[in-house]
Design a protein around this nucleic acid. Sequence first.
DNA 1: CGGATCGTTGAGTTGTATCAAGACGGGTGG
DNA 2: CCACCCGTCTTGATACAACTCAACGATCCG
Lengths: 256, 256
Amino acid sequence: MAPSHRFSSHPLLRKLDSICTLSDEEKAALLAMPMQVVDLRSHQDIVREGDRPSRSCLLLEGFTCFFKMTGEGRRQIMAFGFPGDIPDLLSLHLDVLDNSLSTITPCKVGFIGHETLRDLCSRFPQIASAFWRDTLIDASIFREWMLNIGQREAYSRLAHLLCEFIVRSQAIGLGHDGTYYAPMTQGELGDAMGISTVHANRVLQGLRGAGLISWRGTQLTVLDWDGLKSAGDFDPTYLHLREQTESLSSLRGPGA
Amino acid sequence: MAPSHRFSSHPLLRKLDSICTLSDEEKAALLAMPMQVVDLRSHQDIVREGDRPSRSCLLLEGFTCFFKMTGEGRRQIMAFGFPGDIPDLLSLHLDVLDNSLSTITPCKVGFIGHETLRDLCSRFPQIASAFWRDTLIDASIFREWMLNIGQREAYSRLAHLLCEFIVRSQAIGLGHDGTYYAPMTQGELGDAMGISTVHANRVLQGLRGAGLISWRGTQLTVLDWDGLKSAGDFDPTYLHLREQTESLSSLRGPGA
DNA sequence: CGGATCGTTGAGTTGTATCAAGACGGGTGG
DNA sequence: CCACCCGTCTTGATACAACTCAACGATCCG
């Protein structure tokens, strides 16, 4: 029953397995992609707004953030990148990048040339569909963040963000016993939610005080999953995961 | 010099012309798509959150909005749909819809079956790329709205929204002499910016008082384009239009 | 051990929400 | 054709969520 066959250990396939179905031939083709593997320190730029990259970046290990700055120098984080993600896949069809991408932890990334990706898409239409679908899911997450930032108050907003973080971690096999690796600082949390660092701190203490989570260092532990979900008005539909029920039920076990 | 050949009158081609290049053969194939044309009244749902549509909706005439509701009943508008847009193209690769789509004016729409679209994409890779690119531009706009909602104050936020509305209108040939058809109510404006109707009204009067725009009924007139752009911290890069300079210079003419 | 980054707390300020009520305007029915 | 009605726009008063500024404590790392 466990989906552990010879491919499942690679982060890209874990990620793609969580959102679509691919044949072994297609998976083999993905693993055969030539890529330039690079190790990066934390808080280092990968690509910057205004660049015209000819390759995209597959995140093999670590976490990234995708963000954009206001003219007044305020930063909005648009997305967090998890292992297996290709955070700048959009540059395949968008010549000039309108966002920057940085690491938030030390990362191992693989740069894949756009010709390689285009060739793969034309030879394997299912892979093209999977990549397109992946960018559509990213867009769906952007919309949910817009709803979150525009319409929910900060307390609920943070609860929602953490729910998403947990479900996405779970989907690619990260986290044990209701505890997850959460490397973001409170400043990054604030920039992702459109609130100040100070307020992020206060709201976080609200969640702690309500007994929903504990968060020490980079260890985030869910103490009351149902409570967190309802505080965050969270419905995972927008993540468009396969087997949602399975990953969620395995969550409720250790959480409750 | 004018790009008016036999295809340019159709809204879909005007839209696609603004973001990519297609051959005459591809354009002919697009125009030959079978579609079910329907007239809709204003403020009518087209598809709802939770639907599993087997077709997408090409907007031939009128304006739509794409939105999502909070558990507490607050609405966030994610995007406005212009003539030529396919606001729910994403349903081609996302089984269950996580947003609702409604008209905001009377509309003429053409429903196109997903098999038709898939067939077209497999026969004409350039069309597949154009559609994929279109959804990526939508995502880019979502990100800019996140930045707008999360990091800019209401006055600047509204100025930015109007700048985008004007440039997008301009890109598909709507508007004359700095005047544009803007059918949104102040309530819809507020829901798009994450502020209340009352505050949308006050901020709008701020823009009027600063001499940047006039807006009576559905007629929005730009009085000071450079002023509006700088109030909104607006840079159109994220719209990924072809020939940006051309459409913007023609704007400055009647505007100033 | 010193310095930098991150987390935490307090006090005062400001942007925006809510509630309420009136004015305007366009459509419909008597 | 007028009267009415409903949705939208507008304005005022009050309340609150979140911001800024500032300072201090806790870590971590070199």
